[in-house]
Amino acid sequence: MAIVETKGLTKVYGSGETAVVALDHVDLTLDAGEFVAVMGPSGCGKSTLLNLIGGLDAPTSGTVVIDGREISTLSDDEMTRLRRERIGFVFQFFNLIPVLDASENAALPLVLNGTGAAEARRKAEEWLGRVGLGDRLRARPDQLSGGQQQRVAIARALVSEPALVLADEPTGNLDSKSSEEIASLLRQVSAEWGRAVLMVTHDPRIAAHADRIVFMRDGRVVDDTKIADAASARVAMERVGLL
């Protein structure tokens, strides 16, 4: 089932001679439980795509359907509610409110949605446990490592049981080991917990965790390939010439 469907999605910044086409008729479909990486050189429009799908920005033309709802027709408040309930965000920077502790940060979407404090906290802590932070519930962001902060952000993105998780360079700020862990976690988010995950990254090794990679250039999708095939790792090793 398609969680995300874009049709002819176009975004033009500015107008007239200074107009810049950031996104040029992009058609993209994302199914439930699918983990898709978007790659491409900087300025290729991958972040713009993510922002449009997340309803953070409005397209110049084209449509975005999230979970069966066409979002360009939604008011700011409706969009906000959709984000709160159906979409989870993980950013590269500024992911957490510095003055709240891990469980408070993770509980934010629920609290903003009017869920009772105790219930919100319980759910947040449950998710923090799943992402492996069960022992750092009361730590403030400045007491957590970068990787741990991103785990909190992922727990926050999942706490409202969204259909879609959007991640913009989630490992851009991390060392390679933490990056690997976060990427695995995102794979888990899609494979085990059944969310559609759309991740923008420039790191092949991180993108390789996805099921599918969308390559973009100059605002267009130039390739869209499934990379999870039946071949086993052993075959891959042999092919590399290591076995």
Binding site: E180, A183, S184, R187, P204, R205, A207, A208, H209, A210, D211, I213, F215, V222, D223, T225, I227, A228, D229, A231, S232, A233, R234, V235, A236, M237, R239, V240
Partner: peptide, 24 residues
């Protein structure tokens, strides 16, 4: 030539996917 590159990239990513899966 573009198609050659695309095909090659897909092949490499598939390998990479398998390897990273195995790696984790």
């Amino acid at each position: 030539a573009e198609a050659v590159i695309r095909a090659q990239r897909a092949t490499l990513y598939r390998d990479l996917h398998e390897l990273t899966t195995h790696r984790s």
